[in-house]
């Protein structure tokens, strides 16, 4: 019944959607014993470094890294316990990529304090050796658990997962990429082997939960939001695993007004979020963690 208490905030949130960001409501989060972790995220930014031009038919003046950075800094000032994540395809889409090959994208993500990203299919556009070369400009972790890069130049340059400890909260993040065959030319991805995302996800969750005792598990996925076919997507991934708190998706350029709540294998909720493309939106998820006995309700309250 806790949910009812939060309904009014949801209404407020909806009406405040046009505001650049919303202050976290004190009533809901006033409990000092709760740990507050903020996740900011992007996907499919596709080299959109400048805001859209003012004469753009749909998004005049919107987006751009220097506006996004202003938002990131505001959120960080509000809650320093913030992770900044990306779900792939930061490359390709404007002349910045054609001219500089991804150098500027990685440098800017580093300057904005991104913690991690994953490899989208368009990262391969100038070949796998270009990804390896551009990673020298990345001060964030490139996470990819289901591409086997042995026998490629990327071998050893990516990690399957990374655990971030923020305000004593352990956040395990792992990355998943899409099947490359039929999507990317073989001469670009070379000897990269694609491993089953579902099996790999289960291994990763087990490792992050059991070996690293993570309090939160986040998957950076470039699988795509949802397909009618049997092809694995974020919704199927959420339904068929347990233990992932949040899937930050990409690839399908899906813009979700609010994250999708998916009932996972253990009957709990896994959230799936994706924020369109081109850096038009910045996804924000706030997790409040506390001890089990502090609250009578064992259900997580989702104020979406």
């Amino acid at each position: 019944m806790k949910r009812r208490d939060f309904i009014q905030y949801s209404v407020l949130a909806t009406s405040a959607l046009s505001l650049p960001y919303r202050a976290i409501s004190k009533v809901a989060s006033g409990d000092e014993s709760l740990k507050h972790i903020t996740i900011l995220h992007t996907n499919d930014v596709h080299s959109h470094i400048d805001p859209f031009p003012m004469d753009h038919y749909r998004n005049p003046g919107r987006g751009g890294v220097s506006k996004r950075y202003t938002l990131i800094q505001k959120v960080k000032a509000e809650n320093p316990n913030t992770l900044v994540l990306d779900a792939g395809d930061s490359f390709q889409g404007t002349p910045y990529f054609n001219f500089y090959g991804g150098e500027l994208e990685f440098k800017l993500m580093s300057k904005m304090g991104y913690h991690a990203s994953t490899i989208g299919n368009h990262e391969f556009d100038n070949g796998i050796d270009n990804i390896a070369a551009q990673l020298q400009h990345a001060k964030f972790d490139m996470l990819s658990a289901n591409y086997d890069f042995r026998n490629t130049s990327l071998d050893g340059l990516t990690k399957k997962h990374q655990v971030y400890e923020v305000d004593n909260v352990k956040i395990g993040v792992f990355g998943l990429g899409i099947e490359l065959e039929g999507l990317v030319s073989k001469n670009l991805y070379k000897e990269t082997k694609f491993l089953d995302p579902l099996e790999v996800a289960q291994e990763q969750i087990k490792t992050l939960k059991e070996d690293y005792s993570c309090d939160l598990v986040i998957c950076l996925s470039h699988l795509g939001y949802q397909y009618d076919s049997q092809k694995i997507d974020d919704i199927k991934l959420a339904e068929n695993t347990s233990g992932i708190d949040l899937i930050i998706g990409g690839h399908t350029h899906t813009f979700l007004e609010i994250p999708t709540k998916v009932k996972n294998k253990s009957g709990r909720t896994t959230l799936v979020n994706q924020v369109g493309f081109a850096g038009l939106y910045l996804g924000r998820i706030d997790f409040y963690l506390g001890s089990r006995d502090q609250h009578t309700s064992k259900e997580t309250v989702f104020e979406l």
Binding site: I49, D50, V65, S66, Y281, I285, F287, G290
Partner: peptide, 27 residues
């Protein structure tokens, strides 16, 4: 520790938001 409350908001990077100067200069 377990998740008690989750909130979410997908924020539009609006035209009216000011650009970060140092980043703009870098670009």
């Amino acid at each position: 520790k377990e998740v008690q409350i989750v909130k979410a908001q997908n924020i539009l990077v609006e035209e009216s938001i000011s650009e970060n100067d140092s980043l703009k200069k870098f670009i």
